[in-house]
């Protein structure tokens, strides 16, 4: 029973983290890299490629400085349709917890609302995550692999999933 209780506690912590992540990406995207550890990775690929063990997808970042570069580029250089994204993340499942590391998955949906258009579903999929705790005991992403159900996206991929 203590084991179950521990898992429930971890799941609650990961769900809390995901609630925070959603808030950041949809309201304060310039702080998105702060959800990651210094050597935190972010990888976006299709389920099709993942199931064939093909590593290449939309994006592959290995460290937080690359995520900061990404946000700087998106906010200062890149041109893409003006849209509001709305992320919804479902309850997580904990797969492994050893020491200060947690492996978890969670389903997600991203809706896109472009100016003067009815909203549409931009992506659905599953986050495959690995978390660590910082010195204050808060969870940070060591790795977030976004595995998309859809093998095609509308127009382009700019803002983070």
């Amino acid at each position: 029973m203590t084991g179950d209780r521990k898992m429930e506690g971890l799941a609650a912590a990961v769900d809390r983290f995901n609630t925070h992540y959603v808030y950041v990406v949809d309201n304060d995207v310039s702080n998105w890299p702060e959800c990651f550890a210094e050597d935190g990775g972010y990888h976006v690929l299709t389920k099709d490629s993942a199931s064939e063990d093909l590593p290449a997808g939309f994006l592959f970042f290995e460290r937080k400085p690359q995520l900061i570069d990404r946000i700087n580029a998106l906010l200062n250089a890149s041109i893409y349709p003006k849209a509001n994204l709305r992320h919804l993340i479902g309850a997580c499942k904990i797969h492994e917890a050893t020491g200060d590391r947690i492996k978890a998955t969670a389903p997600f949906v991203v809706y896109e609302s472009r100016e003067q258009e009815v909203p549409s579903v931009y992506a659905t999929g599953q986050y495959e995550d690995e978390f660590i705790r910082n010195e204050g005991g808060e969870l940070l992403l060591l790795s977030r692999r976004c595995v998309l159900d859809n093998d095609i996206v509308r127009t382009m991929m700019a803002l983070p999933l």
Partner: peptide, 24 residues
């Protein structure tokens, strides 16, 4: 290294993300 370089190209790439929008 190819995975890193692919960040430059494709639907999300630093030097190609704009092309879809340009032709739309």
């Amino acid at each position: 290294h190819r995975l890193r370089a692919i960040n430059m190209v494709g639907p999300a790439g630093y030097v190609s993300v704009e092309d879809g929008e340009a032709v739309e």
